[in-house]
Design a protein around this nucleic acid. Structure first.
Length: 484
RNA sequence: GUCCCCUUCGUCUAGCGGCCCAGGACAUCGGCCUCUCACGCCGAAAACAGGGGUUCGAGUCCCCUAGGGGACGCCA
């Protein structure tokens, strides 16, 4: 469920701009919400929340063919899981198509756009020729000043923007600084397709304007688009939003993140056992810093976040650091919540959902268990022995530990344990230590076989704590299963 | 090819002209703790891409080179 984060301290009522901030996350629903998109959403969300403004979600689905309901669901699901709640309803860009066309027609009437009758094949040839000749790959403007009466029959025209040839276009970017390009570098972009639908360039500008977006925070793969959009804003006579182009996240090899790098959907991160707050923290630290601070909770992030802290160089996604961060959040997480989170995983591993008794054990053992896991996957694996009943499967190492000698020792230990009155870690430890002394062996010689017998593994939380959580009956039952 | 952007330890980064023979975190390697594994604690190794300027002084400002990335669609 979504709710608005309350952040009482971040708003300064004396700041007249504070209430005006409106950001948006505008993914195209052609696939899952990948990690780069998630970070863009996070930055927009944090910026809006920090300034007490609004954060909107707009689906850029003008390309109807490539937009799917599944992708829309995945994006919404991903944002909800990450806890990035948006204000108002989800906006579907495609529903504004008529408005976009209207703007294009207005521009046409004002002589700022023109019909272009080139066929896709013709354009492909043009590009190919330019590339072959080593010339810049651009539309050559052949219909810019040509009379529409010369139009070839049967070719539905597109509407192109009459881009200025002289001068330069400057983007004051909050992250990149002042970025400028000579106008001769930019060709006449298509605004309205032959079928009358708007292109991305037209749609973003119109929607960002209509939605009164004040700050456009997006990946810097859009930086060059911003030049064209700036020209459109000028032609339309609309004020430009503030741009902030944040660097992309790269794969381990430094190249743009792709599937082979693990550019997974956020659902994959959930599946791999990461906590949303840990992923948020990690994403935040990719390209943004607040001095030496590393562990930054969401409330703190809202207070601190601003575009000033965003760096200009791309970052690589580091799973090792995410693991470490996740481990920290795991240790701080509420025990009940963790039990619930691993329950489905346990059900799958053990073959049946943990019952009341098992959940009770898991809860009591959680404080110790969560010290030892970096992900929920690991946590579930380490906790499985609490969720099992009946025969405990033994790991290879556990089998090796349980030699005939060790089993014999456990058999001799058993009556001593039965004699323990208060079934708690300290008395149990005293009993086992006394037994080890009597056997003239080190504590480990007893503790390890005991661990193997009770947990099925050679690695576990402190064994006396485990015995306490398991309880007298279960502990002795598991021992019986081994020594016989 | 053209244009735009980027470049501090392996990775994420601090640094906004002197506080830096460069700090933190993750990872790595030692050690302590110890019933195993973790956690925790202590310690080590590890970077200003290269070259020119500007300046009394440059990781910090400017230029060039190299390397990396991004954009060049009737995709978004």
């Amino acid at each position: 469920m979504l709710h608005t984060q309350s952040a009482p301290n971040q708003r300064r009522s004396s700041d007249p701009e504070a209430m005006a901030v409106v950001t948006r996350f505008a993914p195209s629903p052609t696939g899952f919400l990948h990690i780069g998109g998630a970070r863009t959403a996070l930055f927009n969300w944090l910026f809006a929340r920090h300034h007490g403004g609004r954060f909107l979600l707009r689906l850029e689905d003008t390309d109807r063919r490539r937009s799917t309901p599944e992708a829309i669901a995945a994006i919404i699901d991903g944002l909800e899981w990450l806890g990035l709640d948006w204000d108002g309803d989800v906006i579907h860009q495609s529903r504004h198509a008529e408005r976009h066309a209207e703007v294009a027609r207005r521009l046409l009437a004002e002589g700022k756009t023109y019909h272009c009758f080139c066929t896709p094949e013709e354009l492909a040839e043009m590009r190919q020729a330019a590339r072959a000749a080593g010339r810049p790959v651009r539309y050559d403007g052949r219909w810019r000043d040509r009379d529409p009466s010369q139009a070839p029959p049967g070719v539905p025209p597109v509407i192109r923007f009459k881009a200025p040839h002289e001068g330069e276009t400057v983007i004051p970017d909050k992250v990149q600084g002042e970025v400028r390009v000579a106008n001769e570098q930019l060709d006449d972009m298509v605004l309205l397709r032959a079928d009358g639908t708007p292109t991305y360039m037209l749609a973003v500008v119109v929607d960002d304007h209509d939605m009164e977006i004040t700050h456009v925070i997006r990946g810097d793969d859009h930086l060059t688009n911003a030049f064209r959009q700036a020209q459109l804003y000028r032609a339309l006579g609309w004020p430009m939003p503030t741009f902030a182009h944040i660097p992309l996240i790269h794969g381990p090899d430094g190249a743009k993140l792709s599937k082979r790098h693990g550019a997974l959907g956020v659902d994959a991160y959930r599946e791999r056992g990461y906590l949303p707050e840990a992923l948020r923290n990690h994403l935040l630290r990719l390209g943004w810093a607040h001095g030496d601070d590393e562990i930054i909770g969401t409330e703190q992030a809202i207070q601190w976040f601003d575009i000033d802290g965003v760096g200009r160089s791309p970052a690589r996604f580091d799973f090792a650091k995410l693991d470490s961060l996740n481990g920290r959040y795991l240790r701080q997480a509420d025990d009940n919540r963790l039990v619930e989170l691993i329950t489905p995983r346990l059900a799958e591993m053990v073959g049946q959902a943990p019952g009341e008794r098992e959940k009770e054990r898991l809860l009591r053992g959680m404080t110790e268990l969560k010290q030892r896991a970096k992900t929920l996957v690991e946590l579930a694996e380490n906790a499985a022995f609490y969720a099992r009943s009946g025969l405990l499967p033994l790991s290879e190492k556990a089998k090796e530990t349980l030699t005939a000698e060790a089993r014999g020792r456990l058999a001799r230990l058993k009556p001593r344990l039965e004699a323990v009155e208060a079934w708690a870690p300290e008395p149990l430890e005293r009993a086992v230590r006394a037994f080890a002394e009597a056997e003239k062996v080190k504590l480990g010689q007893v503790a390890q076989p005991l661990r193997a017998a009770l947990t099925g593994a050679t690695v576990s939380p402190g064994i006396f704590g485990v015995m306490a959580v398991l309880g007298r009956e279960e502990t002795l039952a598991r021992l019986s299963g081994i020594v016989i």
